[in-house]
Nucleic acid binder design. Sequence first.
RNA 1: GCCCCCGUAGCUCAGUGGAACAGAGCACUGGACUUCUAAUCCAAUGGUCGCAGGUUCGAGUCCUGCCGGGGGUGCCA
Length: 559
Amino acid sequence: MIRDDIISLIQQAAHKAQAAGDLPMFGLPDFVVERPKNPEHGDYSTNVAMQSARLAKMAPVKIAEALINHFPPAQFIGKVELAHPGFVNFTLSDAWLAQQVAAIAAAPDSFGNSDTGQGRKAQVEFVSANPTGPLTIGHAWGAVLGDTIASLLTATGWDVTREYYFNNGGRQMRLLGESLRVRYLELLGQSNPIPQDGYQGDYLRWVAAALVAEHGDSLAEVNNDYFRKRAELSIFANIRATLARLGVDFDVYYNELDLYESGKINAAVQALSTSGYAYQKDGATWLRATDLGLKQDRVIIKSSGEPTYRMPDIAYHVDKLRRGFEYIVDIFGADHHATWPDVLAGVRALGYDTSAIQVIIHQFITLMREGQEVKMSTRRGEFVTIDTLLDELTTPSIPGRDVMRFTLLTRSADSSMIFDLDLAVKESSENPVYYVQYGHARICAILRKAATEGFPPDDYAGGDLSLLGHPAELRLLRKMMELPEVIADAAAQLAPQQLSHYAQGLASDFHAFYRDCQVVSTVPAERELTRARLRLVEAARIVLARALGLMGVTAPEQM
RNA sequence: GCCCCCGUAGCUCAGUGGAACAGAGCACUGGACUUCUAAUCCAAUGGUCGCAGGUUCGAGUCCUGCCGGGGGUGCCA
């Protein structure tokens, strides 16, 4: 991408200047090549001269001059300028920018991609909600973050597996089964209380009703384990359907019981014991986390003989590493932030390097309805499901998932956001996602219009790109050429919100172009300009569609 | 008590590999549709970047303390 090319040219310039004796010999320090906020400062800018001042024992301005004098010629650079107190500013070549339309059109499905992953295996684990109830708004954030991060990693050359892990062997699921059994018996006329800490949501009533319809009263004496499995199955079907509506598709669903049955948990416990990282106290088995740099030791097997959630999590992460993933991203809600250091410590105790594991903790979403905070609890059956939200956000032409995904993708994971339902529904007609989608639809309208005016694609494909040079055209082109850097940065920083902000900027530059430049003209003298602009517009459509596609948001042809 | 995240415009939020005048959307005000879709555009308004110190040639961005909000600190997950 352009930024990397400039970095390399700066290094070449420094070497040439040193060879010519215009700069003393010194190793280049860390420096940045960034996009200046002020357009007068060019398209890219570097602080290398100021960073080098101390090492070179020269004034920044003098260093900058030497670099500029020895700057190698490059087709894509239009101007290299010095600015006080020592910035070197680069401006892209207008002619080169115009020609990039061809490069974009040649790679409609891959423009902006790069290859830091080089085909290596990466895994993104997200959602991972236990099947005790429907998915809620908090899960939606994890889902959208994870899915988009996975897409970004794919775009940067990783072989990505999207994975959902869930606990189906512990106390929670036993309680779920008991709660379902109570609901079932309730429908048969037997009244029993929901167990302590059990699940009170209505959804178990629906599952119970299905059981009655299917089996009548024949399950009255059946044990809890049957109900547990049945609840898991039904709720998981619901979760999968919700994920499908959100446009999220997992490659692997991995569950805790498989870890037990395959002996992986026992093996991990054994290994921890023999290596001395586990010890017995008060009838329980503890992980010696204090030897691994943590503040306190943790129970991994309760005195009841049942492992705590940490043990399967440790075995699961070991399994991830053994499966050959070279980059692992875990996405959890803020309520899990205290648990993952223990889990990683356990993995390290088993002799594995955990440096490839990145943990993203997203903060909580406060849901507001009618000016009131909606407190949610799966156990109490008080929550607003993703399905409900999607229903409310859907409009005749645009699926609710677009609004939900885009909205969630405008915030950084660290921000504890407020999601005002009334506002989201009321303002959905002014949601920024429509602004971006409208840009795409507008382009499609232009292309349709062009076809009816005698400019089908195979005609304008031969348009002369050198005719592009209007300020609005160049501004749009510049923004289009930013996509590779946006994808690379968003992927490297695991910060998908950069995509939504980029998409808004791109749409904005397109709308401004639309205002300033008539694309389709039937005036004979403007025929060639029309053909060139149609190529530009088609390329802009490709870039817009790519940004939307990475976010999992649809790119409508009309609105 | 201790740990993590946050505190930027009336509201919701970007911006933290330090850098050249602090951004967007919404809301509010005034303009632009015989012209490829006005779900658009233009203009105006709006900020002591929580507070106080410190590091630096340069701090919204790094460090320390304080204040405020959220999350955690289980032999729950």
